[in-house]
Design a protein around this nucleic acid. Structure first.
Lengths: 156, 156
DNA sequence: ATGCAATCGTTCATAGGATGAACGATTCAT
DNA sequence: ATGAATCGTTCATCCTATGAACGATTGCAT
C-alpha cells in the first residue's frame, strides 16, 4: 500500500492515544486467562486501597454509572473475589470488601502488570522509562486526572 | 475519601493507558461540533494519504470489520465528505475519494488537533514534548504498530 | 469456453456495553 | 410525622462489535 507522508510528524497527543489503546488491549489479553477483565481489575484495585467503600463511591471514582457498577460487582461476587456486606448502621449502604481470593487475584494482577510494563517498554532503557513516566505524571497532574485511575478500558 | 497509597508508583504502561483514554475523550469532545466523530476523522486521514483506496484496505488498516466500515462510509458519504466511485476496471472495487468538502473538513480537524495537542501538553516545555514524542515513537516502532493509525477511539 | 474459487461490498442477526429513568428500602431534616 | 434525600437495583433503549451469509464480479484451471 503506497502512502503519501502525512504533512507533519506525529504529535504527542496522537501517540498517547495510540499507545494507550495498544497498552489497554495488550493488558486485557494478558489477564484474560485469569477470568477477569481490565474493568474488574480496576475495581479490585480501588477496593483494596479504599478502606470504607460503597458502590456509589466506586462508581463515581471509576467513572461508571451506578447501574453498571451493580453488574460488575455481581460478576466479581460470583467469582468469589469480593463481598457485599450490608452496613448495620445505615442499611442503605453495602460495604465492599475483598475476599482472600480477591487479594490473591490482585497479587496475580500485579505481577502480570509488571510483565506487561516490561514488554511494552522493551524499547526503552530504565532511565528512559522513568523519564516517560515523569512526563506522563506531569500531564496527569496538570490535566486534573485522578492518579491510579483511568476510565474506559475497552473490551471485555 | 481516604486512600491507602498503592504499593508502587504508577508505571509507564498504566500512565499511557490513562492518558491515552483521556486524550481520546478530549479530542472527541473538541471535534464534536464539526459533526464528525474520531473514527470518521481517522478514516478521512487515511483516505487522504492513500492514493488508491478501497473499503477492504481501509477496514484492515483501521482495524475495523468490513461490515462496520460500510456503515461508517455511509455516514461520511451522507455528509458529503467523500464519495464511492465504482472502479471501471474491476467493478467489485469502489474507490474512495475525498470531496472538496472532505478536504476542508480535514483541514479543520488538523487545526483542532493542534489545539488539542497544545492543551494536553500544557504542562510540558517544547523540549519535553519532543522528548515525550520521541519516546512514544520508539515504543510504537518496537511494538510493531502502524504509524499514524490507531484502533479503537472510544465513544460516538 | 466453462466451471470453480476468491474477492469485494453489503445485509442481516446477535450479543454486549452505555446511558438514563424510575423504584423500593432506608435514613435524615424539619 | 411527613417529605426530601440517599443507596442499591431493575428496566428499557440506544449504539457498537462481531461474524455469518449473500450477490456481483473477476481470476484461474482445466
Amino acid at each position: 500500500m503506497k502512502l503519501r507522508r502525512p504533512p507533519r510528524p506525529t504529535g504527542a497527543a496522537f501517540l498517547l492515544a495510540q499507545l494507550g489503546a495498544h497498552a489497554a488491549d495488550r493488558f486485557a489479553e494478558r489477564i484474560e486467562g485469569l477470568g477477569v477483565a481490565p474493568r474488574h481489575a480496576g475495581i479490585l484495585r480501588v477496593v483494596a486501597t479504599t478502606p470504607v467503600c460503597n458502590q456509589r463511591l466506586l462508581a463515581k471514582r471509576l467513572g461508571v454509572l451506578p447501574s453498571r457498577m451493580v453488574i460488575l460487582l455481581d460478576e466479581l461476587t460470583e467469582k468469589g473475589l469480593l463481598e457485599r456486606k450490608r452496613s448495620t448502621k445505615d442499611r442503605r449502604h453495602s460495604e465492599i470488601i475483598l475476599t482472600r481470593r480477591g487479594q490473591r487475584m490482585l497479587e496475580k494482577l500485579s505481577r502480570l502488570a509488571a510483565e506487561h510494563e516490561a514488554d511494552l517498554c522493551a524499547a526503552l532503557t530504565a532511565k528512559e522509562r522513568e523519564d516517560l513516566a515523569a512526563l506522563g505524571r506531569k500531564i496527569v497532574h496538570q490535566q486534573g486526572l485522578t492518579p491510579d485511575v483511568h476510565p474506559g478500558y475497552r473490551k471485555l
